[in-house]
Structure formats: structure tokens, C-alpha cells
């Protein structure tokens, strides 16, 4: 009977989360520097059109793509973080733990800083062309690191070793970026720093033609990893004894998380803490370790939290929109601290 009760409870929480996600999505589209009445926005959203051409443009070309970016990025980072925490059995693992987002940063640094230092003009000054180049560079950088990690994953038997290598690769990338900054002009460094602050607002409809399909595919692929993730809860040895091909499953998980992190970082910049904090909040909320609940739940929760952060970043008064990284870190850091404190109590 207890099992049925908890099942009902979980369905209710799922329903509430979905409602929250929808509400935050609408709020995201309704709020902005230009005031558009909420009822008009709702009508527009259900396809009833809107009087002013200008309003339509703002809603369709600015707010809708940005909200979609936030939702998909949030879902992707959260499910990536969950998988890393389970695979490495480490509560402090996140999607950036393998150095993939550091690799993206390195790629961007090469384009923004190195090119600037060599040519004398930074690519970021080239408007749309510059923005596409930066995204490409970030993606290439992330992919290089991802392939390195995958290559090592085939060689290394032990997950802990892989984790250490990933962290070290991240440090090395950051060191290279630091080195490039030393030789760069103030403007280029400024451009790099701005990229590093993260934003959900840089993904246009053209970019969405890549962003949404890649993230959607990776999210669907995560659903297919539910069984191996559950088995991984018991650690590699037990997992192997239960019939799991440990190395192959690990490779699958790394590819999915790698694609998510690489794509999201390339398009939005490094977004901190979401991928780390959301899995913990979701586990606390559902009081379960079962990935058939957690995987879909962290996606919804992650999307909702990213939308909430996006709203906070654009609250009236912060007219120019705050850097998203500042908001996610301010929300994420206390959660991570509470996790550590709770862990300690368990150990004591």
C-alpha cells in the first residue's frame, strides 16, 4: 500500500512541476523591457495573433527563442549533471566535471583572444558572423575535449581515474586560456569575459535549427540510459556482476552528457551550478534514487529553474539583463553548501 501511496504522491509532484514549468515559460515571455499586457501574450501564445507588428516581433524573435533556450539548456544541464553524479557516485559532480565546458572556453579563447592578438582585430567585433564563429569555436573546443575523454575512457578501467583526468584536463584548458589572456588586448578579454558570463539570449531562430534538435535527441537518449544508471548506483563491480557491460554503458553516458554540455556551452556559454544543483533538489523533492523517476523529473525541474533564473536576470530594474551565470550561481551555491552539510551529518 505504501508503494501505491508514494506513487500517487510522485504523480502529483510531477503535475505541479509541469504546471510550474508552463507558468514560468509564460512569465518569461510576458516580461521584458517593453510592456505587453499578459492577456495579449497569452492570446498570441495560443495562436490568436496580436495587434501590433512590433509586439509580434519582440515576442517571436526575442522572447520566445530565449525562453526556449533557457528551458532546453536547463533540462539538458540538469540531466547531464544527474548522470555524472550517478556514474561517478559523487554528489559534487556536474556536467562540466569532465572538462568539456572548459574545452569550449578554450575554443572561444582561441577565436576571441588568439585571433585578436595575431590579427589585431577580434572576431567578436564582426557581429552575426562573429557570434556564429564563437559558437562554432566553443563547440569544436568542447568536442576535442570530449573525444579525449572518450578515448581515455576506453583505456581507463576505473571511474575515479577518469574523473581525475577530466578535472585535470579542465585545469589545463583554463591555464591555456589564462596564458592567452596575458597576451591579449583589453577589448578582447572583455569579449571573452562576457561570453564566460553566459546568456540564454544569443540563440536566434537560425541557431535553434541546430540547438533544439541536438538537445532533444540527447534528452531522448538519456531516457534510454535509465536502466544502466540505476545499476550504476551500486558501483562498477556490482553493476558488472548484474550483467551490465560497464565500459560500453559508461561510453554511452559520456557521449550523451558530452553532447549536451558541448552544445549548451557553445550556444549559451558556461552556465554554472544548474547541472549540479537541480539533481539534488529533485532527489530531495521526490525522495527517490530511481532514475525512471529522476531522469524525466530533473529535465522538467531543470527547465523550470533555468526559466526562473532567466526571469530574475531580466527583472525590471536589471534592464540590461544580468549575466545568467551570476544568477544561477547565487541560487546554486547555497544548495550545494546545504548538500555538503547534510552529507557531513550522515557521515558523523
Amino acid at each position: 500500500m505504501q508503494a501505491i501511496d508514494t506513487k500517487n504522491k510522485k504523480s502529483v509532484i510531477f503535475g505541479l512541476l509541469l504546471f510550474l514549468l508552463l507558468a514560468l515559460f509564460v512569465i518569461n515571455i510576458s516580461l521584458g523591457s517593453v510592456y505587453i499586457p499578459a492577456e495579449k501574450v497569452l492570446k498570441w501564445l495560443v495562436g490568436m495573433g496580436i495587434e501590433k507588428e512590433k509586439w509580434h516581433n519582440i515576442l517571436f524573435n526575442t522572447r520566445l527563442p530565449q525562453s526556449l533556450t533557457a528551458a532546453f539548456a536547463g533540462a539538458g544541464l540538469a540531466v547531464g549533471g544527474l548522470q555524472m553524479q550517478t556514474l561517478f557516485r559523487n554528489p559534487l559532480a556536474g556536467p562540466s566535471i569532465l572538462g568539456i565546458s572548459a574545452g569550449a572556453g578554450l575554443g572561444v579563447a582561441v577565436v576571441v583572444l588568439l585571433m585578436g592578438a595575431i590579427n589585431g582585430t577580434a572576431l567578436s567585433a564582426f557581429g552575426v558572423f562573429g557570434s556564429v564563429t564563437v559558437t562554432m569555436a566553443a563547440f569544436v573546443g568542447a568536442m576535442v575535449i570530449l573525444f579525449m575523454v572518450l578515448f581515455l575512457a576506453r583505456k581507463l578501467k576505473n571511474n575515479a581515474m577518469l574523473l581525475i583526468v577530466g578535472i585535470m584536463v579542465g585545469y589545463a584548458s583554463n591555464a591555456l586560456v589564462g596564458l592567452m589572456q596575458f597576451f591579449s588586448t583589453k577589448d578582447d578579454i572583455q569579449a571573452y569575459v562576457v561570453w564566460g558570463l553566459g546568456s540564454f539570449g544569443n540563440v536566434s531562430w537560425e541557431k535553434h535549427q541546430v540547438f533544439i534538435p541536438v538537445i532533444t535527441l540527447s534528452l531522448l537518449a538519456s531516457l534510454f540510459l535509465i536502466k544502466p544508471l540505476n545499476i550504476y548506483l551500486l558501483g562498477e563491480n556490482y553493476a558488472a556482476n548484474l550483467g551490465l557491460n560497464v565500459k560500453r554503458s559508461r561510453l554511452h553516458i559520456l557521449i550523451v552528457v558530452g553532447m549536451l554540455t558541448a552544445t549548451i556551452t557553445a550556444f549559451c556559454g558556461p552556465v554554472a551550478f544548474l547541472g549540479l544543483a537541480v539533481p539534488h533538489m529533485t532527489k530531495n523533492l521526490f525522495k527517490t534514487a530511481d532514475h525512471s523517476v529522476l531522469v524525466p523529473a530533473v529535465m522538467i525541474f531543470g527547465a523550470a529553474l533555468a526559466l526562473l533564473c532567466n526571469v530574475i536576470a531580466r527583472l525590471p530594474g536589471f534592464d540590461g539583463t544580468l549575466p545568467i551565470n551570476a544568477v544561477t550561481s547565487l541560487i546554486g551555491a547555497p544548495i550545494v553548501v546545504s548538500v555538503i552539510l547534510r552529507r557531513r551529518r550522515l557521515v558523523d
Binding site: I226, K227, N230, L233, L234, G235, G243, T288, A289
Partner: peptide, 26 residues
């Protein structure tokens, strides 16, 4: 090795023992 996973119930843990016999989603 000690297995300590928060919120993993005895039932779920023992259920994982059925892994070799369960389908794609476990």
C-alpha cells in the same frame, strides 16, 4: 564495499538483482 545511496530503498536495491531478467527500462 558499503553501498550508501540516499533514498534507495531495500526494495529498489533488491529489485536491481532482477536486472539480468528485466527488459530495456528495467
Amino acid at each position: 564495499e558499503r553501498i550508501s545511496v540516499p533514498n534507495l530503498t531495500v526494495f529498489e536495491l533488491v529489485g536491481l538483482g532482477r536486472t539480468p531478467y528485466t527488459g530495456f527500462f528495467g
